[in-house]
Amino acid sequence: MTGAITIHAKALTKRFGAFTAVDAIDLDVHAGEIFGFLGANGAGKTTAMKMLIGLLMPTAGEARVAGYDVYTQSEAIKRSIGYMGQRFSLYNDLTVLENIQFYGGVYGVPPAELKRRTDSLVHDLGLKEHVNTRLQSLPLGWKQKLAFSVAMIHEPKIIFLDEPTGGVDLITRRQFWELIYAASAKGVTVFVTTHYMDEAEYCHRASIMVDGVMAACDTPAALKEQFKVKTMDEVFYQLARSAQRAE
C-alpha cells in the first residue's frame, strides 16, 4: 500500500485500574486500505477501536486519525469518520428514509446533497419500495447493509466497522463485503474488526490481537507463510492458543 497514512497509533495503551486492556499497540493504516483487526473476545479489539474513534480516552501512547489527535481533537475526528457499532445502531421505530435523513442531518450533509445521496443509496441497496417502511419489519441483513450505508452518508475518508457481520447469513455477508470493496476502491480507509477468519482473507492487511498485545500484523498471504499454514483460521488458532485471557 502506498496511500497516505490515515490512521496512526504508537504505543497506544488503555488501562482500567490494574487491568491493561490494550498494551502499547502500534499501527499505520493507509488510505484505501482494508485493515482487518482480529482477535478473540476480550482481546482488546473493541477497546482499541473506541480509543481511535474518540469514545474512550487513552491512558498512554499517541494516535492520530485523519491527521487529528485523539486526545484533543476527538470532535474533528468524528466529523471525518464513519462508524458502525456491534449493536444495531439505527432506530427500529423510524422508517428507512427517516433514519437516513436523521443521520445525514446530524452529520451536516446539505439538504439538496442529502437528497441526491439518499436516492442513490436507496437505489444501490434495492430498497426503493421500502423507503417508508419501519426498520422493525425489515430482515436483519437489509438493516445491516442500510446501517453501513448510513454510516457512509457523509462520505467520510475513514470508516470503522465493529463486527459488522455478526448474526447475518453467508449471502448477506458476501454482499456486505462487496460494499466494503466498493468503498475501498473509492479511496476510503476501512478499519474492520471481525472474528470470522474467512473474512480476514478479504482484507489487504490483517492484525491479530492476543491479550491486549498486537501479536501479528501483515498481509494474509505473508501471515500464512510466516506460520507455515494454509488458512487464516490456522494462523489465528496458533496465536490464540497462547492466550491467557478468555471470556
Binding site: 474513534i53 469518520i81 457499532g85 449493536r87 439505527l90 432506530y91 443521520y103 452529520y107 451536516g108
Partner: peptide, 12 residues
Amino acid sequence: IGTIEQINVAPI
C-alpha cells in the same frame, strides 16, 4: 438499545 453509541461518534 445501543443507539447512543452511534450518536456519540457523530459530531453533535
